[in-house]
């Protein structure tokens, strides 16, 4: 039995499988910082002080230096000398501001984040004059006052609640794909006949077909947890994260094995598997009770529902243990 596991592992290394999967995982983890950065800019362009230096012209109530009459302001806007025109009119102390920005998404996003900052400050100033309290909240860390970059929470949630669950699911999907391939390859290339003529029982062959991907994915999970830590992403509870992640793999590998043994044909098994995996992906990354989310939460050091986690892990490993009994790959 161990011979088959050894053979499959050897093949994997020779065929660069391991290399390409590691590359995949490293790549996903590596560019995560870039993707996060981009997403933050999309959601929240003022993150990291991304205000730029937009030029604005003010018409009417003059609250900054660059004030013009409307005609000049519009001409400046037309010639591109200013990026936005703010037409301010006062009605009973309330300033109504028409902000004219270019009808171009990229420019508008940059200008608007600047205008937003400008007008928020103006509002605070006016509130002070009118006696409306502004929120005075100071943040301290280690005895010093600090500035919290807005968007920190989004970044944090992205890493722990999207990226880590995705890494865990990718590992599981890869392992399941591997199971399907390795079972179907033996059947379709008829090498199963050769294996069956050896003292190995069909049961042992089945067990070795699910054992290899499990070993592989456990190594992989440990590797990406380590890479995250090296990337300065704190992993608060690595053992728990590892166990839950490996149980997700166990569940997926069992499904992959059952489909492959049932269809005995790679194309259909892979298609069916990928349709189901793609369909359940949204639930797996959005739900509190999803095991993949639990991996992320365990890494973040947040509380998880331990009963659900334990039941899921036990059920997955039970399914994995029983799958060679449910479907054998003996008859041709």
């Amino acid at each position: 039995m161990f011979e088959i596991v050894k053979k499959d592992m050897k093949l994997m290394f020779r065929e660069r499988t391991f290399v390409s999967v590691v590359f995949l995982i490293v790549f996903v983890a590596g560019i995560s910082s870039v993707v996060t950065f981009g997403l933050i800019m999309l959601y929240n362009p003022d993150y990291l002080g991304f205000y730029g230096t937009s030029k604005v012209a003010v018409v009417g109530e003059c609250f900054i230096e660059s004030c013009y009459d409307k005609k000049t302001a519009m001409e400046l806007f037309k010639s591109g000398k200013v990026d936005a025109v703010l037409i301010v009119s006062d009605v009973d102390g309330i300033k109504y501001v028409d902000v004219i920005v270019p009808d171009d998404e990229i420019k508008a996003a940059q200008v608007l984040s600047y205008v937003k900052k400008l007008l928020t400050e103006y509002e605070e100033k006016l509130r002070n004059v009118y006696g409306v309290p502004n929120l005075e909240l100071k943040v301290y860390s280690g005895g010093r006052e600090i500035e919290i970059p807005s968007g920190s929470s989004t970044v944090f949630k992205f890493i722990y609640l999207i990226l880590i669950p995705l890494l865990s699911i990718t590992t599981a999907v890869v392992a399941a794909g591997m199971t399907i391939d390795s079972v179907c390859e033996e059947i379709q290339s008829r090498s199963i006949e050769v294996l069956l003529s050896t003292p190995l029982t069909p049961f042992k062959i089945s067990v070795s077909k699910v054992a290899t991907p499990m070993i592989f994915s456990s190594l992989l999970t440990a590797l990406w947890l380590l890479l995250l830590a090296l990337n300065k992403v704190d992993v608060a509870n690595p053992v728990l994260a590892f166990i839950i992640s490996v149980s997700i793999t166990a569940f997926f590998v069992s499904l992959g094995y059952l489909m492959a043994a049932k269809f005995r044909d790679r194309e259909r098994a892979q298609l069916l598997f990928s349709i189901l995996a793609a369909g359940s992906l949204p639930l797996m990354v959005t739900k509190y009770a999803s095991p993949a989310v639990m991996v992320g939460r365990a890494a973040a050091g947040a509380e998880i529902d331990l009963t659900t986690a334990a039941v899921f892990s036990a059920a997955s490993f039970a399914l994995l243990a029983f799958s060679p009994f449910i479907a054998k790959i003996d008859e041709i």
């Binding site: 037309k78 102390g93 309330i94 300033k95 501001v97 902000v99 608007l112 007008l119 103006y122 509002e123």
Partner: peptide, 15 residues
């Protein structure tokens, strides 16, 4: 309404 002494409306315009 004095809670918000500044009100904004954004107009997208092709210069």
């Amino acid at each position: 309404e004095m809670a918000h002494p500044v009100r904004v409306s954004v107009v997208y315009l092709e210069p």
